[in-house]
Computed example of a mutant assay.
Amino acid sequence: MSLTPEPGPAYLSMPSTVAQYVPPLLPEDTALRSAGAQWLERMAAALESWRADAPGMVLDLRGASPEGLRFLKEVLGAGEVSALAMGNPDLQVEETVFAGLWRVRGEGVDYLEAADIPAILRRRAVAGQLALPDPADLPGDLVNAPHVFAEILARHDAFERSGAAHVFNFDLVPMSDADLGWLVRMLGEGPVVIVSSGYGACRVRSTGLNGAWWVQFSNASDILILNTLEICAVPAVACAAPEDIADSARRIRALGAAYG
């Protein structure tokens, strides 16, 4: 029984390996090292300035020198989380090997952001409200889905009022394929897709209900092993932890010390 929304071209492929931090080798090229020294200082300062519930510092890369961009490509690498924010324009988001330091790219857009999660993912995921359907419009083969949907809306209202998050584990709720398919259609698909390899293979997708996210874990064969719907701002599995952000700042400072 699957709760995965109908596949489409916007889905990112599931990770097959878990990224591990390996200290980057600093380039020997003098021009790259000179450009890099400036970026290391700016990135460390951006991470050190981060505070929960505050906007992250953005470092615009559009004016960076070719040497600076080459340095960043060599040093930043790829982290555990990637995302797609559909809209105008579509944006690719990649966490670097330094947790909490993200690169966001798209048409006319290229920047680094120091944050638990890039602000663009929060903004693009903002959706509307949903209402209970007319009982007369319900398919006749549904059993539990209408009751679960009512509970989702109630938990959503509580989250909007108080910030109280909630997780629905659909592996523990008796629901038929018809129930699950109807629930997926009612919630709809949002514009944000996030893939994380930090806790196994995990796909996160926003829905048409503000603050409601599908969070689905798969095994190495890409078989769904855990289905949940989280009512929250952004699921924690996609976010960098504060201690990891602080550690990233220390790592970048240590790289900068190599220039001394």
Rank of each mutant, 00 (worst) to 15 (best):
T228P: 09
H147M: 15
M14I: 13
G56Y: 03
A37N: 13
V234W: 06
A119Y: 04
A99K: 07
R105N: 13
P24I: 01
W214Q: 12
T4W: 12
Q216F: 14
V81A: 03
Y21W: 10
L226N: 11
V184P: 01
A114T: 01
D247E: 13
V143F: 04
I245H: 00
A37K: 15
G8W: 09
W213G: 07
F168A: 07
S197V: 12
V195M: 06
Q38N: 14
M57H: 13
P5Y: 02
T30R: 10
R251H: 02
E94H: 11
E151Y: 05
G106Y: 03
V75F: 02
R51G: 04
A220T: 13
I194E: 00
A257H: 10
C239P: 04
V195Q: 14
F170N: 00
F168H: 07
E80S: 14
A119H: 11
A44T: 07
A31T: 04
A99S: 13
A35S: 04
Y199A: 15
A64H: 05
M43H: 05
A212C: 14
G140T: 12
S221R: 15
H156G: 08
D141G: 12
L3P: 04
A236C: 11
D29N: 13
T4F: 10
A10H: 14
V97P: 01
D116I: 00
P174D: 10
W39H: 06
E189R: 15
C239N: 06
A125R: 05
I231N: 01
S176V: 07
G68C: 06
M86E: 13
L91G: 01
L255S: 05
A154D: 15
V58N: 10
A125N: 06
G63K: 00
E28R: 14
P118M: 02
V104S: 06
A31I: 09
A119P: 02
L72N: 02
N169H: 08
P135V: 05
A19R: 08
P66N: 03
P9C: 10
A127Q: 08
D141M: 03
N219Q: 02
L121Q: 00
L47E: 02
F159K: 06
A238M: 01
P27S: 12
E113A: 02
Q38K: 12
A236K: 14
L187V: 03
A125E: 02
L61G: 08
V22D: 07
A220P: 08
E6R: 14
V167D: 10
Y199C: 15
M175E: 00
D171I: 13
R250M: 09
L187Q: 06
V167R: 11
L25V: 08
A158S: 11
L25S: 03
W50R: 02
A31P: 02
V193F: 11
T207S: 10
A64V: 11
A165W: 10
R161M: 07
R161E: 14
S221A: 15
C202D: 09
